[in-house]
Design a protein around this nucleic acid. Structure first.
Lengths: 327, 327
DNA sequence: CTGAAAGCGCTAACAG
DNA sequence: CTGTTAGCGCTTTCAG
């Protein structure tokens, strides 16, 4: 292994000069800098991160907890993760990936000083991890928005606004009775933060727009069709549909077309999903995009600010946009 | 921050005793061990990982490169990653996640001693990263199977066998002309290893079974339907379909049902996808499961062996299984 | 503008 | 069975 001492020797300078030449934390004469740089890539020197961490007490690593719980939208999770990784790399950080869904992994990596900060996904309205995060030395940012006092910075998509927007749009199209087909039962019962907020926005908008709305959990895949049929059996007067379930979406839309309830000419569906998912569904004419990648980069930006010393919590919500797809 | 010295003082022993009590690398009297353990959790001591790494020159971190390229099956990637993380945690390792698709990130983390080993996904038949990996001090395992000499350990699903199995089954059902609807164009042109092997198995089985097979790339989502229509327009005598494209699957199956070419009574489709994806498609009666989670754990096991000193490359392929779904 | 040297917190000889 | 101590490879004072 080639160390900073090898570089120093080769360049004919002291190791501190090499260190400073790399960090730029004090001025180095152009000539010296030149020789140091030449030595560095002649030897292929790469500083040992553990040594660096130990001396500087910072790791340049961010912990990212991305639990893969049942019912989550895989595309959304993946895109958020990619957004985080991509953005943090531009700032010189790597990502340590945790997949557990409790505070254990978080505490372990934080207390072992393996990370400079933590990013936590899939937040529940009343999330037990928040207390644990607050105890840590390292700053953290939630991707999601818990209920109640927000003592940690939060980044999320405005799901409440999206719920409201969907209703407004469907009402504008003339629909008087609207069903929200949302997340699977599991997601609802653990009160995943986005589901709660989406439902709230939906309900409030229905009241405001004077339309009748109903909220239904929705299983993934083909079973979703049965759920839809049951909903329509109970209330055949429903004509508008707000769908937020990536895995059920294609099946639901196909069924609605089959039933003659939805078509490009007579749209009855607003979907809430990543844009590429929406585009992959034929006859889906309008959707509100879940900007998953942007959520990841926004979270990365928030964490960067925390690392820079910012200390006020703060909530950032990315606003919803409705898109019409030409078919 | 509480250090090993604090623990030693509180327990009334030397720091080496504390260290050895934790690692078990030498015998400690029960009484001493007791006091050390008491001190450890009285103080909430957690060893500083960078210090540990520096002293022991091992990080207990594995680098996992999971490029999210266009056309990859997101569920498969996610499940493999989850399998890797889960399994490595049971062995005390954490995962550093890289999302780039070239050798840069790999070399950076390896040369900076940030990881003990590397796991690389989405391998192409002639993958440029292999040369880079071979240069590293750290061992590595490929999730995928490149063509040619295999100087690195490989773990994968037997896609060639799966291609063969699909054809045999469809031939058994009486199909004489079979279309393989596979990955999107991008995946084909970069010669992703699994696509090449699947196609080869498919072609060889067709020859052996004396059926006529044709291989078609297939776009994601709704566009897949157009591709299917075009294929059938060109050769209407095709009756059997082998589909390996998670994002196109529901649309293709729906279309085939619509055309009267597929039904539970007269099955014409074998899908290749994770089981939960298959289960989510109505009227899909048979599929070969891509055991993505198991691939992840198998890769983790292979890496563990490498870390244990194993040095022969070796290839492990998980065999395919055909499942019939009751509908 | 540059060097010398004191740690960072731990592991693993070495020495009882 | 336990203690002492020399590093691991950097960063960052302190001293020119």
């Amino acid at each position: 292994m080639v160390t900073i001492a090898d570089v120093a020797e080769k360049a004919g300078v002291s190791i501190s000069t090499v260190s400073y030449a790399m960090s730029g934390k004090r001025s180095i004469s152009p000539a010296t800098r030149e020789r140091v740089e030449a030595a560095i890539d002649a030897l292929g020197f790469q500083p040992h991160q553990a040594a660096r961490s130990l001396a500087s007490s910072s790791t340049n690593v961010i912990g990212l907890q991305a639990p893969l719980r049942p019912g989550v939208d895989v595309h959304v999770v993946m895109e958020i993760v990619t957004g985080v990784v991509t953005q943090m790399r531009t700032r010189g950080y790597d990502i340590l990936l945790l997949t557990g869904d409790d505070a254990h992994g978080i505490e372990r990596v934080a207390r072992g000083s393996m990370v400079d900060a933590l990013l936590v996904m899939d937040i529940e309205s009343d999330d037990p991890r928040i207390a644990a995060l607050s105890q840590l030395e390292q700053p953290s940012v939630l991707i999601g928005l818990p209920a109640g006092r927000r003592n940690l910075p939060c980044v999320d998509f405005d799901f409440e606004g999206a719920g409201w927007m969907a209703v407004s749009h469907l009402a504008e199209l003339g629909h008087k009775r609207i069903a929200l087909l949302g997340s699977p039962e599991e997601v609802m019962t653990r009160h995943t933060s986005y589901a709660d907020r989406r439902d709230r926005g939906f309900a409030e908008a229905c009241a405001s727009e004077k339309v009748v709305g109903s909220v239904h959990p929705c299983p993934a895949g083909a079973d979703a069709v049965d759920a839809l049929d049951a909903i329509l059996a109970e209330d055949p007067s429903i004509t508008g549909f707000f769908i937020h379930n990536e895995a059920a979406l294609p099946h639901l839309v196909a069924r609605l077309v089959e039933l003659g309830l939805h078509s490009a000419e007579k749209p009855a569906v607003v979907a809430l999903c990543p844009e590429n998912v929406a585009l992959s569904v034929p006859t889906l004419t309008e959707s509100i995009a879940v900007p998953a990648f942007a959520m990841g980069t926004a979270a990365a930006d928030a964490i960067t600010e925390m690392l820079g010393g910012a200390r006020q919590p703060g909530v950032r919500l990315i606003p919803p946009t409705l898109t019409t797809h030409e078919r």
